[in-house]
Simulated assay, not measured.
Amino acid sequence: MSDDQERTPDFEVPVGLFQDLEDLRAQVARLAGQVRDLTDNGDADAGEATEHDDAEAGDAGEEEAQFPPFILLLDPPQYDDELRALMEWVEGVLVPGYLAEPSADARWCHLWFEHPVAIARLHALWLAWQELTDPATCGYTGPSVWHRDHLDPCLRELRPSTGPFAGCTKGEHQVGHRLPGTVPSAWNRPED
């Protein structure tokens, strides 16, 4: 019997379980390789990195690049693309589904994308929504977690009368809101 025939079950296995088994197999192979490297490199000091470790570090860096970065740290071409996608989600999902008519207690600015604080919070909310509404990554409780842990706190921060839209009223937009003044420091007292 060949390896492929041994590895393929003769009954139907859920895809997730089969993927978990493949992940475990890969982890065991990686650990076996590390043990082999450690035992073969007896002359290397305990603190020295091996070629295998360096390769893994490079692989880890490549994996991290798959995750979207914080939107406010992006440069113009990537920032514009990410903001455009965020705007589609906010205007297509969030506003019609979750935002009631703005009021003094629940503000909203139709030009929210000109408020950096709103962009940052809504981008984080959108990233969480992408992950937590996909049953493949979070199961069936993801949407509940998204509402409880992400949507509700985000709206509590964005929509109060003291939030980033505080200076915006229905139909009127202000980006240049009052900034905090200089806070006097106990360490820097003026010379008398």
Rank of each mutant, 00 (worst) to 15 (best):
Q130E: 07
A60W: 09
P164H: 02
E88L: 15
Q5V: 08
R36A: 04
E88Q: 15
D3P: 04
V15F: 02
L86K: 10
I119F: 03
N41G: 15
R189Q: 14
P68K: 05
L111D: 06
I119G: 01
H177P: 01
D81C: 06
Q174K: 14
E12H: 07
L158Q: 06
S144H: 09
I71F: 03
V15D: 05
C138L: 02
L94I: 07
A55M: 12
D43K: 13
H110L: 09
W108T: 01
E91N: 15
D20M: 09
T137P: 00
P143D: 12
Q66H: 08
F18N: 01
R30Q: 08
S2L: 04
G163I: 02
A57T: 08
E56S: 06
V183R: 11
L179H: 11
V15R: 01
P190F: 07
V15P: 00
W187A: 13
M1P: 12
L122M: 13
M1V: 14
D192I: 10
D45M: 10
Q19L: 10
L17T: 02
Q5E: 11
T133C: 09
E56Y: 10
P68W: 01
R148S: 11
Y98M: 13
P180Q: 12
W89E: 11
V13S: 00
R107E: 02
L17D: 00
I71L: 13
W187L: 12
A106F: 09
P76G: 01
R25T: 08
R7W: 08
D149H: 07
G181M: 02
E63R: 15
Y140T: 14
Q5L: 08
E91Y: 06
T137I: 00
D81T: 10
G181N: 03
L94C: 06
L17Q: 04
W129P: 02
D45S: 13
D81N: 09
V95K: 14
I119D: 02
P69G: 08
D80Q: 10
F113T: 00
P160Y: 05
